[in-house]
Nucleic acid binder design. Structure first.
Lengths: 138, 138
DNA sequence: TTATTTATGCAAATGACTTGCAAAAATTGG
DNA sequence: CCAATTTTTGCAAGTCATTTGCATAAATAA
């Protein structure tokens, strides 16, 4: 992932190219999330930016649909790059908090039912909480 | 819903019968939620109890599985009575925040997939965000 | 480059939720 | 039913993720 790609992505959403935006978007585009704000702060080069700036970048990225918010029953949000070709959900281990991706999405029957109620622009949030194989042994 | 029923429900979970617990559980058992802590405070008789007590009752009810927590993309939690015979999900209108119930749950295919990954004790959170018929007209 | 707009850092504020502690209510053992 | 003990509550202060005000710095426009 080179700077040109990052810059182009930002520009395409009308966002100027600044160091915090570059580093945060780079992280989100290249590494596997979802990331908390703390994860982001620890993963970008030291001194890149302030925590307030991370929050501000995140809201802008969310507004522009560059990223998605993920809530996994924690008292903070996580964020991941929004790849429309890779719609997926998560399982988080109730014991060790390890997060796995679930790549197939079978919510069509729900959508039909909700459409029949007259709703439009339907989005969904689906997350799973379970005990992972490793924690079952321990 | 009479006091005897409420008292019995509390006792069955090893909780003593106090006024705050009685009023909060009564609300959750008789009225249609999910309720925020603010909703609860406004819906129980005036002077029933402090906000801290509502939070404490809620955590106890959650621990005893008397109620379930529901997150609908707001910056606070909602809670509803846990009726094992009435597993359901919610749609919240992205415009007016009205909440509807979705009574059928079609997540079996997901469960198979997650079981195959070796997970056990699988729970899920599924919520929908959409525009309701009324807000489409307005 | 210079002027203007936009973004950032820092510190303080916000708001949901939690907690310490003394008083009040509930339970227990006569 | 009463006195003793345990549990619960109210109040106020604390916590923690997230937001915001404002002066400075960086980016963009002219």
């Amino acid at each position: 992932m080179n700077e040109a790609k990052i810059r182009a992505t930002l520009k395409s959403k009308g966002l100027s190219y600044t160091r915090p935006r570059k580093e945060i978007l780079h992280l989100l585009m290249t590494r596997h999330g979802p990331f908390s704000v703390d994860d982001i702060l620890k993963s970008i080069p030291d001194g890149t930016c302030d925590q307030a700036t991370v929050y501000r970048c995140i809201s802008q990225f969310l507004e522009k649909s560059l990223i998605k918010e993920v809530r996994l029953g924690e008292d903070f949000s996580r964020y991941e790059f929004n790849n429309p070709d890779h719609h997926h959900h998560h399982v988080i281990c109730k014991s060790c908090q390890k997060i796995d991706s679930i790549d197939n999405c079978f919510i069509a029957p729900f959508l039909n039912q909700i459409k029949n109620l007259g709703y439009t622009e339907i989005e969904h949030a689906l997350e799973f909480f379970a005990i992972c194989p490793k924690c079952q042994k321990a």
